[in-house]
């Protein structure tokens, strides 16, 4: 694993490169992370997935969007639009690192929504897509975030912090700021229609049924080279203390790797 910075000086992005093991090969995968607290919970599993893929002979690049993780930028500066262009930078960087002409993209939750948008925008660069429990309807996702945060009230501590307009407005969710702009972007996500416009092979995997999923599932299952699977496993982005703490959804990971192969 090699940690490094890519992108431009103004938009320094932190990435970790896993070279393909066993050498050779120019199959490459960019991984798109979920947002906020989901990132924290899912991180370990995503590292494991990268490691599995690397062992299977893929060059893998994990990275942080601008304003998240170890990338430059403050957390309130993170936008979906900006993250989308970060994905493009990551793709270019991985092509340079690996010598591949195009890459596959694996996205989890919001990362999956972004990955789908990226595939629509840059079809020449992306050869296949894995959508892992993608956010299909942004508005519902946003509500889910607010509810989760509200339900996690710590006794003695007041309601969620609200941010000033200078800091983008909006409120805090599980320690991360959802600015007004970001909330608006989340609400505007309509991944169902994005997926229907895609021509490349898409594999969608989910650990539970959600609204809007059935139609997408049907469509993907009837497309050549694409597919949908419902796998009974743990929600990697969400920690249900103490039941699934530290859990790595091995079944899902193995399924993703075998679909990639």
């Amino acid at each position: 694993m090699t940690p490094f910075y890519f992108g431009s000086r103004e938009r320094r992005l932190f990435g970790v490169y896993h070279p393909a093991q066993g050498g050779g090969g120019s199959r490459a995968v960019v991984m798109c992370y979920p947002w906020g607290y989901e990132y924290v919970n899912a991180h370990r599993s995503l590292v494991k997935l990268a490691s599995l893929l690397s062992q299977e002979g893929y060059h893998v690049l994990r990275f942080d969007y601008f304003g998240t993780g170890d990338s430059a930028g403050e957390d309130h500066e993170m936008t979906l639009q900006g993250s989308l262009s970060d994905i493009s930078m990551a793709i270019e960087e991985l092509k340079d690192l690996s010598g591949a002409d195009h890459v596959s993209v694996i996205g989890l939750r919001v990362g999956a929504a972004l990955a789908a948008q990226a595939a629509r925008k840059w079809p020449d660069d992306i050869s296949s897509l894995v959508l892992w429990d993608p956010i299909l309807k942004g508005a519902e996702y946003l509500q889910e975030l607010y509810l989760l945060d509200d339900s996690m009230r710590i006794p003695g501590v007041g309601p969620a912090a609200q941010f000033s307009p200078e800091r983008g407005g909006g409120r805090e969710v599980m320690g991360f700021p959802v600015t007004d702009a970001l909330a608006s972007e989340f609400s505007g996500l309509d991944v169902v229609s994005t997926i229907s416009e895609l021509k490349l092979p898409v594999f969608m995997v989910a650990i539970r049924p959600v609204p809007g999923q059935a139609d997408v599932a049907y469509e993907l299952s009837s497309r050549d080279g694409s597919g949908f699977e419902l796998i009974d496993d743990q929600p990697v982005w969400h920690e249900e203390w103490p039941d699934n703490v530290g859990v790595i959804p091995v079944t899902v990971l193995n399924r993703i790797v075998s679909w990639m192969n």
Binding site: F4, Y5, F6, R9, G22, G24, E93, D96
Partner: peptide
Amino acid sequence: SEAGEGDQRLVAYVVFEPGSEMTASEVR
């Protein structure tokens, strides 16, 4: 460096002037 059997690649190691750190993309 040998990335794999028969797969040789160039690896560059750089030390930046303090304050002038570039990203890998920029160096490339």
